[in-house]
Design a binder for these strands. Structure first.
Lengths: 194, 194
DNA sequence: ATGACTTCTTGATTTGAGTCAATGAATTAG
DNA sequence: CTAATTCATTGACTCAAATCAAGAAGTCAT
């Protein structure tokens, strides 16, 4: 399926779009192709685009003072990826975004998107709902990440993102869960033995 | 200072309000007085109001399957408190909100506020900005909560919320930081000895 | 195909936070 | 004001995950 059709179907799951809006979406969302390991956004740069993944897999991560990587989000086809705060406030990004596989993202600049909102209120509604979801997803992660034992967090991850588990190296999943690769390896062993 | 004036000053720090809007704010935000330990919102109820704290101190917390409390947020005079997801989507709240001191909140129902947005676009803008901030505050907590050692998280907390540290019992701060009261007590001892 | 690098696993050890238990201090209620 | 309750501290112990280290398996580049 072509990238734009995927995006249109994705949006249409939440709001209905008439044909003129669909055309606008096809015009204004620009495909960008990324090689594996290519960076989509650097920490410190301003994120000027809203980005939809049409193909591939990316990660959103931070590098702390001790040069330790911490993965915040994985995203695959049909997801959105961004440093939302940077995008919203037009301040330097606090994360990196990198392709983990050859990927295609459809991106639209904030200016263009703002204009599009005037022409297509349905689209604005779509984003409002997306933002709400983003907020609550983050909130759930904050709460649950807090208390639950690793074993449980790992199986939650597997259940929530079955596609991702297959495609992402294990040490990155460990980073996402906030544990060492060694610990994850042991958790897996424990879990498989029963 | 009267409660509504505090709210008006607070909003005016971000957007400018003309006198007619100020009057509307005085009319539509209704004060609610809470005794210490009184509940403002129960898990399972829908949060129908946006709430500004004019006096006192409250907490937002969850109780997990093991009857363990986890505090997500403290809030004092000049802050907002809500179960945002419940409010936004009109679904049952996932948290409790409780007064930790005798408190006064100014609250407005979602319906009223939505109407007010039509009369006062500046107000809508104010909330958009507030929501962005809420998202990023949560994001920071998620990231940092993940990796940093307890000692550092505790001093971050002290620096970010100096007022709160004075007013909230220590075991609640421990809960907010995701550790036991015993551990916090030991961290404090370690920190004071150097 | 070969060597170089990356990733995963496993073992030994250390460490930091949790648990349990007791005591003392501080708040609250009557 | 006193008793009851709640809260903070401390000690002894346990345990889960981190760290350190080595080796096996897998992947990539030439």
């Amino acid at each position: 399926m072509d990238s734009h059709q995927l995006l249109i179907d994705h949006i249409s799951e939440i709001v209905s779009l008439d044909d003129s809006i669909k055309s606008l979406i096809r015009e204004r969302f620009i495909p960008r192709h990324l090689k594996k390991k290519e960076m989509l956004l650097y920490k410190g740069d301003v994120s000027h685009h809203m980005r939809f993944i049409a193909e591939g897999c990316l990660r959103n991560y931070n590098i702390d003072e001790n040069a330790q990587e911490h993965i915040l989000q994985f995203a695959v086809k049909g997801w959105w990826i961004n440093d939302l705060y940077s995008y919203l406030t037009e301040t330097p990004a606090t994360f990196f975004i990198q392709a983990l596989e050859d990927s295609v993202v459809l991106q639209i600049s904030k200016n263009e998107l703002t204009k599009l909102f005037d022409e297509a209120p349905a689209l604005e509604r779509f984003y409002r709902i997306k933002f709400e979801n983003a907020y609550v997803a983050l909130q759930n992660r904050t709460i649950h990440g807090m208390s639950k034992p690793i074993e449980e967090r790992y199986s939650d991850f597997r259940n929530t993102y079955p596609e991702i588990e297959q495609r992402v190296p294990q040490f990155m999943i460990a980073s996402y869960l906030g544990i060492t690769p060694e610990s994850l390896s042991r958790v897996r062993k424990r879990m498989s033995s029963k």
